[in-house]
Amino acid sequence: MTNPTAARFRSLHATPALRLPNCWDAASAAVIAAAGAPAIATTSAGIAWSLGRPDGDALDRDAAVDAIARIVRVVDVPVTADIESGFGATPKEVAATLAAVAETGAVGVNIEDTTAEAPGSLREVADQVERLGAAREGAGPDLFINARIDMYLAGIGEASERLDATVARAEAYAQAGADGIFVPGVTDPVVIAALVKAIRLPLNVMAGPGALAPSELERLGVARISLGPGLATAAYEVARRAAIGLLEDDSYAAIADGIGYGTMNDLLA
């Protein structure tokens, strides 16, 4: 491996688990890095919202890549980017997306297997395998491809069949060149432990309120813990409360503990 930042990021998928906060713009990335994060992920939902678009492949490739580039420029830690389903209708277009992301200096991506055209459904395994193979080709050997499987998140199929179906997809994606497997939507510790045991690549889960604590996920063998859009939605909730405070409650309480103006300027200097 020729890229030391990529090698450092890859090495973090071990014990203890990589705790990976998700940013949505350059300023949030700078705040997260300053908090001590060893690496940063982007949230595709948060980036889309920050650019005035909904989540779900509504953002075009150039806008997404530009946002990733701005994030990479302001931090010194590895950045992995959520690129939804690859910003491309064809495997060739997915390869072009990966090449563009690698050019920004990001060292990882998430690629999901849902389809925007048919919400709540997954691509056929053969189709996703072809897209992941193209992604590997476009990314080069260093970039960490985290293949997302939305079986649990979308509630697809019978609950009793999801584990085996997820494991089968994980193996196919591994053979196609994926470096890690991301299974959002799973919270049952028995299922998580079974996924860790059955999947040969590092397992990433999405956590938040109601999920197992990070230390408990580590004990189950999870290699990577991310928050998805959770940080972005929490920040927007603070903005909503502050607006209500000003407009209705005769109060400034919601902004009392904000990061200082000078601190933010210094982080981005």
Rank of each mutant, 00 (worst) to 15 (best):
R10A: 14
Y261H: 14
P16G: 10
L18I: 09
T42V: 12
M264S: 02
I83M: 05
R8M: 08
E124G: 15
S85Y: 03
G157I: 04
T104L: 01
S215T: 15
I225P: 07
G260N: 11
T97E: 01
G88F: 03
A39R: 06
A176M: 07
L203V: 14
A256T: 13
N3D: 15
R10S: 11
D55G: 06
V129F: 06
I244F: 01
A135K: 09
E161M: 13
R224V: 02
T43S: 15
Y152G: 04
I111R: 09
T15L: 01
P54R: 10
V196W: 01
T114P: 02
M264Y: 13
A63T: 14
G105T: 12
A213W: 10
R169S: 05
K92V: 13
F144G: 01
T5G: 00
E137N: 04
S160G: 12
A27C: 12
V94M: 00
S28N: 06
Q128N: 07
L267N: 11
I156F: 06
E218T: 14
A235Y: 11
T15Q: 12
A170R: 06
V109M: 10
A242P: 09
V196D: 03
P38N: 06
E216R: 13
V186I: 14
N110Q: 08
V190W: 00
R200C: 00
D142Y: 07
R53C: 03
L98A: 00
D82R: 08
R10N: 02
T15K: 11
E112Q: 11
A89V: 07
E117R: 15
V190G: 04
R240E: 06
S251Q: 11
G36K: 09
T166G: 02
D113Y: 02
G155H: 09
L132R: 06
A207E: 07
P189G: 00
A147V: 14
M1A: 13
T5K: 13
T263V: 12
P91I: 06
L20W: 09
L246F: 05
Y261I: 15
A254R: 04
A48H: 12
G210N: 10
P38W: 08
E117L: 12
F182Y: 15
A198G: 00
E103R: 14
I156E: 12
G208F: 10
A116N: 11
A41Y: 04
I40C: 03
A172M: 03
I71Y: 01
D188M: 05
V190D: 13
L267G: 09
D257I: 00
R169V: 01
R136W: 02
K197P: 00
I145P: 05
T115D: 08
I68S: 02
N265S: 13
E248I: 00
A174R: 15
Y252E: 10
D150Q: 05
V79M: 06
D164E: 15
T43W: 09
E237Y: 09
L18Y: 01
S85N: 13
G36E: 04
I156H: 12
